[in-house]
Design a protein around this nucleic acid. Structure first.
Lengths: 153, 153
DNA sequence: AATTATTTAGAAAATAAATCTATTATTTTA
DNA sequence: TAAAATAATAGATTTATTTTCTAAATAATT
């Protein structure tokens, strides 16, 4: 699928605020309401737009403690890998999990209330998953940038 | 702010799909449309809901290559730190940047087209920022889990 | 128990989305 | 290059949804 300048601008606007009315968008894009409507429908149909979501401020729900957690498996048989991935994906505290290159196998982004909650999470949940060899945690001191908006080139 | 079960369920639903009509939500929550409407307004007013965004599928816009990048600064004077943070936040390829504990100072999540684009990014953009000591890149082999939805407890 | 908040429901008004038809651009191909 | 086909757009109409308003019900406070 090819994007013209209008599509790119539209996607940019929707990534900033998807609750804008088509009329507002039509003004910003110098298009008719119908044209905006049809363009959005197309982007949805082609699954360029994956979904529309509300972003909740973690500070407001007492989940300000962010930890990145490296994990190494004891073994890399397909069984172990699949089992681990299935189990880790179930954990609510784990927002993201990536299989990565390098010294460790996985990188997890974990969201909890505080250090005590993180300890609980490690002891009771994470290390309860089988086949974990070692872990290494990095605590977020400050969030410098965090966006869900991708620039379309 | 305190959340009752309805608020939690509502936030959960909106984090999954914020384009549901209040009527749909009212059915799922066993409430009237107005009740849903007022609850959402309150969550917006209190900034529990930060914003509503469209999530774009990175594969569809040719930005499938994800890299986590560790960065160490040569020095940690406030000047250097602030300058680095300002500069790195400007880069479109950098979706997230965290000041973290551990061996490195920062962890970046970088989104580009491919390895070649990453090389370009490193050479032309990232390492052009002053005061960077060393970097260490981890390439994402597979995205096991990736959600923007936080579980409210 | 009475008074004051707050929350909720239902109806009405205002706004926006979705559909339809006609027109204008753009691309294809003969 | 011109004709035909396709795609994109505008404007009007219909349908659906949000927002506002008023009244009733529920919960909290005195």
């Amino acid at each position: 699928m090819a994007f013209d300048t209008t599509d790119k601008k539209l996607l940019e606007l929707l990534q900033q605020d998807c609750k804008q009315t088509n009329k507002e968008l039509s003004n910003k894009l110098n298009l008719s309401v119908t044209a905006v409507y049809e363009r959005i429908r197309k982007l949805e149909r082609e699954a360029v737009i994956d979904r529309y979501v509300a972003l909740v401020k973690k500070e407001k729900i007492n989940k300000s403690f962010v930890v990145f957690c490296h994990i190494k498996l004891v073994q890399h048989s397909q069984d172990y890998v699949m089992k681990f991935e299935r189990e880790v994906a179930k954990l609510d505290e784990v927002l993201e999990c990536y299989h990565i290159s390098g010294d460790y196998d996985y990188l997890l982004k974990v969201l909890v209330t505080d250090m005590e909650a993180f300890r609980e999470f490690m002891v009771k949940k994470l290390t309860n998953i089988d086949h974990i060899g070692s872990t290494h945690s990095m605590f977020v001191i400050n969030e410098v940038k965090h966006t869900t908006g991708i620039t379309i080139e």
